[in-house]
Design a protein around this nucleic acid. Structure first.
Lengths: 329, 329
DNA sequence: GGTAGAGGCACAACCGTTTGCGTTACGGTG
DNA sequence: CACCGTAACGCAAACGGTTGTGCCTCTACC
């Protein structure tokens, strides 16, 4: 069936080890021989079998990328960037979706770990305990979560959140709400903390509503509570929630931004294309994906001695159309 | 380092082959022995090395999934479904992004093919010739493209397109435009053909504008041409293009649906969340993902004798807010 | 001219599993 | 009692590469 290193060796009259070295250590083989081998390999359509190589080298040249929900528009740009970066480094990436289920998440990691050199965990819902136990089996890099002693890429959402709360205050809003995210979400905790702090500084009254599903439905379902809370400004866990909320408010006869100003988080595609265009906090997802891959590869190369770097990426408020001056009460 | 089958064998006092069989052919080993081995394996945290297994069995239990652009909201639901279905069958999936580049697409396939049992090609831009050459190396299933002699999952967009053109005609539109998609796209061809045919039947004047990039920018850039064409109804290659077009028309002082009715294709998230909500043609992406995986796995199991099934999935028009009765001229 | 050193290659062991075949022990059959 | 089938397991050869070691040959140097 497939052409192996032995076929190439036979056809070019050298030993398999020479063929192997022409690919993995070219400087150890005579230029003339090397060219002949390369030509024969090319002619036969030889491609090294990575599984076999992995067996001896212990490196699969594969990465795992685990996200809560591929269909959540926050993730695709990250996946795209990670995958592209990995390819540049001659790595391929398995993508898996946990459906926001911690049990499935753990199973996935355990299934994947023998097959990859490292795993990228994006916004994991797993407990830190479990993650720390698992890290003995395979190098991790975690995105948007702090885990003691693990390399981490953080999007500093607090920065943007403080700006967002300031923005609302500047527009004259006094009573604002926060739609928090799922229970295990680190980002949600960060948003909440920064918002509470800044709101206190500015003398705003902040109502926290949640947890909410990180989806359009989550926002839609929260519309009633928001309307009842009598607030004029809302910060949402993500853009999807914000769009759902806007829809729900509209159903209740409330206009955005006329009656209520709404701010999202993540600046994903739907918010940029919606009407009104969503005021939101940009998350550097593509950069995070690339950086996470590089950190992970560094971890893989360093082995035990891997530096447990924490990279912080900046976020910022982008003001569009879903916020405006509070109507005088 | 990692615990191997030998460690388990030693610790449970049997030969490695017995351990191997406890996992891959349990009926061949005594119940008592089996339980002992299983207990020991569990205790040691043994996980079979899939690369090693792949080496002897010739099955990697991996699949490749290649799409043009992960960040295009059309794909994530498909990826999600495919990946979930694969996992149920004990398969993992590599996801790769070609950036709409045929050359990269081919390279990717060649890199991946030694590492997977089969490849899922979604809306490939590759020429049929190349695909047919490549299929000798690895089983394929193609989504949204016809390739002679290959298993295929088709979303029958023609169905929806005919309904869409009928819908426009019913609303009194006489001059309509079609924003076509990228050059190599099969879907774009189908849309064009069905639209032309139905438009002729109904006596509509159809202007085809394109090719356009399958993105928001593509639609935005086409707004001028649409405005100049003096049409009152537009069918777009996909929802992103439609949303871009709506934005572009608005910049030119044209209201949707007031002045121009716009219809998208694919019913992806941004269109459902936009204002006005997009009238569009639903594409059964999740079902296509699942079906493609099943077809591919069947192909893998059958080997050369694989049936080259063609599955046709239905599409339909969903009428929302971006279309309305033509303003009387 | 003898020897040291290095370049270039072959040899073979090894990575972790699977699997065809051989061996043993045992129960049933004629 | 001889024979056979079968259940349960061990043995060892693959699978397709990598890599440490050793042999040979050629060049350079004293």
């Amino acid at each position: 069936m497939a052409v192996t290193i032995r076929d190439v060796a036979r056809a070019s009259g050298v030993h398999v080890s020479t063929v192997s070295r022409t690919f993995s250590a070219p400087h150890l083989v005579n230029a003339e021989t090397r060219n002949r081998v390369l030509a024969v390999a090319e002619g036969l359509g030889y491609r090294p079998n990575r599984a076999a190589r992995a067996l001896t080298t212990g490196r699969t040249h594969n990465l795992g990328l685990i996200v809560a929900d591929i269909a959540n528009p926050f993730f695709p740009p990250l996946i795209k960037a990670a995958q592209a970066q990995a390819r540049e480094r001659d790595y391929h990436v398995f993508v898996a979706d946990t459906d926001e289920d911690p049990v499935l998440e753990q199973e996935l990691i355990e299934m994947l770990c023998k097959q990859v050199d490292g795993v990228l965990l994006c916004s994991p819902r797993l407990s830190n305990r479990v993650i720390e136990r698992l890290r003995a089996q395979v190098p991790f890099v975690v995105v948007n979560r702090r885990v003691k002693g693990l390399a981490t890429v953080l999007m500093d959402v607090g920065q943007g959140v403080r700006a967002a709360v300031g923005h609302l205050a500047g527009l004259g809003h006094r009573r604002v709400a926060l739609l928090s995210g799922p229970a295990g979400s680190w980002t949600s905790g960060e948003i909440r903390e920064s918002a509470a702090e800044r709101a206190a500084d500015l003398g705003l009254e902040l109502t926290v509503l949640g947890p909410n599903a990180p989806t359009e439905q989550g926002g839609l379902a929260a519309a009633g509570a928001v309307a009842a809370a009598g607030v004029t400004g809302v910060l949402c866990y993500n853009d999807l929630v914000a769009l759902g909320l806007i829809e729900g408010l509209r159903e209740r006869g409330l206009d955005v931004p006329g009656d209520v100003s709404v701010i999202g988080v993540d600046d994903s595609l739907p918010g940029r294309l919606s009407r009104p265009k969503l005021t939101t906090i940009t998350m550097p997802t593509a950069a995070a994906g690339r950086m996470a891959v590089d950190l992970l590869l560094a971890s893989v190369a360093a082995g035990e001695a891997a530096p447990r770097t924490t990279a912080r990426l900046e976020t910022s408020l982008v003001i569009r159309e879903s916020t405006q001056r509070a109507s005088s009460p």
